[in-house]
Structures are given as structure tokens and as C-alpha cells.
């Protein structure tokens, strides 16, 4: 399975960040999750950063972009911390992706490979 992100459906509720971390750390926090909401609040510009094994997937509302390790991200304030996070293991060993379970809007969905 794979994760599909449609950030035009994101309401910014943030629960996916915590659900992701809960899979990897069993606690309620965000610091070791592989998903991170990018929020330019005053401009109402919300996107999702997803750290994968070999890159970072930027789900922008206008379309996705893939950032190679070490590349500079334009217009993605707050992106630096995600480079320090563990990569997503697609909830290895689980039947469902935790972030998908938690997302209330269909912004995050499961995609069969």
C-alpha cells in the first residue's frame, strides 16, 4: 500500500501528524512523525510534507513536488525540522495507515501499489 495526499482537502486539523507519531512512538506528540503540516496561516496556504525513505514529498495545493535530500525548499517555512525526522515506513506491520485512519476529510487516503 501507499499513501496518497490531496492537500486541497486538508482542513489543517493536524491530527495526522500525531497519528503518524503514535505509530512510531506510541505517545501523543509530533516530534518523530514523518508527516508535517506546512501552514502559511495568514495566506491560507496549507500543504503537507511527507518524509519518505529517499526524499521528501511536498503535497502543495497546486500540485506535488519531490525534494531530494539536501535541496532547498522554496516557500516552505518550517520545512527544516522534517529533514531530521525518521522516514515513513507506511505503517509496516499494520493493516492500515494511521494517518489515513485519523484524517477526517479524505486528504490522506490509502493507495494500492
Amino acid at each position: 500500500m501507499n499513501l496518497k495526499i490531496d492537500s486541497t482537502k486538508c482542513t489543517g486539523c493536524r491530527i495526522c501528524e500525531f497519528a503518524c507519531n503514535y505509530h512510531s512512538g506510541d505517545d501523543f506528540t509530533t516530534y518523530s512523525g514523518s508527516l508535517m503540516l506546512h501552514r502559511a496561516e495568514k495566506k491560507d496556504y496549507y500543504g503537507m510534507m511527507w518524509k519518505r525513505k529517499s526524499d521528501i514529498y511536498l503535497a502543495r495545493p497546486e500540485g506535488a513536488e519531490i525534494m531530494e535530500p539536501g535541496a532547498k525548499m522554496e516557500g516552505a517555512a518550517g520545512s527544516k525540522p522534517i529533514t531530521m525526522r525518521p522516514p515513513c515506513d507506511l505503517c509496516e506491520g499494520m493493516e492500515e495507515l494511521y494517518c489515513v485512519l485519523a484524517c477526517p476529510t479524505g486528504c490522506l487516503t490509502r493507495e494500492e501499489k
Partner: peptide, 19 residues
């Protein structure tokens, strides 16, 4: 309305951004 936004972990997005 640009997008509707939710408070933390809210299943209903009760706020709307007006552009």
C-alpha cells in the same frame, strides 16, 4: 470562500477563509 479550516482535531471544519 477559499478553504474551510478546522480547529485542532475537529472532524467538522467550522471556519472559512474568505479571500
Amino acid at each position: 470562500i477559499h478553504f474551510n479550516r478546522a480547529g485542532f482535531n475537529s472532524p467538522y471544519a467550522a471556519n472559512s477563509f474568505m479571500m
